[in-house]
Design a binder for these strands. Sequence first.
DNA 1: TTAGGGTTAG
Length: 645
Amino acid sequence: MSSATFSNPSLYLSTTTTTTAHSPSPSPPPPTPPSLLALRPADLAGLITESTSLRRVRELHAAALRSGHHLHPIVNFRLQRSYARSSSSSSDLDRSLSLLRLTPQPNVFFFTASIHSLASHGRPLDALLLFSRMLSLSVPPNAFALSAALTACPLHPGRALHALALKLSLVPHDPYVATSLLHMYARAAHPAAARRLFDAMPRRRLVSATAMITCYAKMGDLARARRLFDETPHKDAVCWNAMIDGYAAHSSPRESLRLFRRMLASGATPNEGTVVSVLSAVAQLGSAAPGKWLHSYIKSDGSIRLTPKVGTALIDMYCKCGSLEDAVAVFHTVANKDVVVYNSMIAGYAMHGRSRDALELFARLCDRGLRPTDITFIGVLNACSHSGLVDEGREFFHSMEKDYSIEPKIEHYGCMVDLLGRAGLVDEAYELIRSMKIEPDTVMWGSLLAACRQHKNLALGENIANFLLSNGIANSGTYVLLSNIYAAVGNWEEVARIRTLMKESGVQKEPGCSSIEVGSKVFEFVVGDLSHPKSKEIYKMLEEMNGLLRDRGYVPQTELVLHDLGEAEKERALAVHSEKLAVAFGLISTRPGTTIKIVKNLRVCSDCHTAFKMISEIVRRKIIVRDRNRFHHFSEGSCSCGDYW
DNA sequence: TTAGGGTTAG
């Protein structure tokens, strides 16, 4: 439990109160109409309950203070409830808490409203403290107070609350308490404990089933989640969302999308949460057609507004589907943009290599008075890294701690290692890793290893690879990169040795896979794929392209081929890479002049990168490739990455 | 009175 999580426990935990604590508002109250001052407490209380805006509540609060009725128990309670219900800012919440403190003997209702407010405003530990304060004042808890305290409650105190619930005979019969406990175990990744509660409940309610489904889905146990989901009748949007989001969050975007279509067919009404989950699924797929369809669905459905959350998800989706223009258009339409909206747009610019735009947006974010977050800096550093902006990157990296008090995390170090490594400052990158207080991860080593290959730094590359191999933290990428490093310096004996080592240790390179969308259908290709019905035409086009490429001086980079093959076979192996097959298929099945969009699961191979630049010029078409790291926009013989990747 | 959804390097 970190003390930083407690916002200001002394505000309501202390029995002695200070002047400031008594004052509900630091600023002078607004002028009070004389008519309000003449009201009797009961009438004032009635007006407070009827008021629909926080502004009105504040006005009535001011009137209560002026007339001295603020200590009247009913007026006091109604004010507190109104603040607790509508508090959108922490100052409203604190106002509500100070009212609680003003009340001589608050009852359980009074406490519950505040506990609930704290818990639902991301202060679960403060909520728990207040709950324990209530117990210490001998106010008996009920189901309401207990379930409020359990909202967002962590496992350890949660277990104690479970015991208390048993003592009060609230479980398993009270559905609210039981479901709150179920949620608590679900958050703590204790599906077995959650399931025991669920099975003990006398009646299976939709909310509890949804909580259980969410629990399984969060754990990645999609099969169990789905079984319970299918067994649950009369599902509402939240229940559908739990399952749709489960698939989206565990790399099953197709299943997520399929379920969303079934949801629509079933007549259930999607809400904001649904579209946010489905948008993230579409972003993973990277296919523009379902994304566009979803966007028009949102626009046509009057009930789903373009809130910052929906906007963020849309921006992210468009960026990852290769349509930066649509993302920018959405960005400009979102009202009340928060920092997360900016973050998604900055990250979007970065992944498309539009570094200057990313940095400009960062400046605009600061101008608007928004505070950048750690994630903002990941986007910013990534932008620098993709364009070789070494000095800027260094500056941002230092500034995040110095000016914004954000301690760099492994992700930020990862960006810096990548930035320095790509720029050829391999030793500086290595020094940075060694200077870190955090343990480096394999990906970070991999990124440095890749830099060693790129800049032909054999000594350091070998050093790192041996370290990874002997410590058992090498992955298939380590072997491939090490082999590439030897190939780059022409040490073919070592290349052969690594290949044998790879075979012996049983590591296998993750198979590359490229997909392309044609006529709103997605086609996938692996290396040497022959499964497509149009395979013959695809290979014919490939051969034709190869001829044209050679005429322009293209030389296959056979040193990239890991297998022990003859030169001709190596060339053959390169020619049938999944991304080349996808582009060939695109060329034969789309109209001339249209953009070809490819999604690849790994980094685009450097030979394909060279080939695509030339192809874009030969056929006068744009080719957009999303690889594991970023986007490449090929056009007129060059790539948006400027060969810096 | 319950529940859930957005951004994240290589």
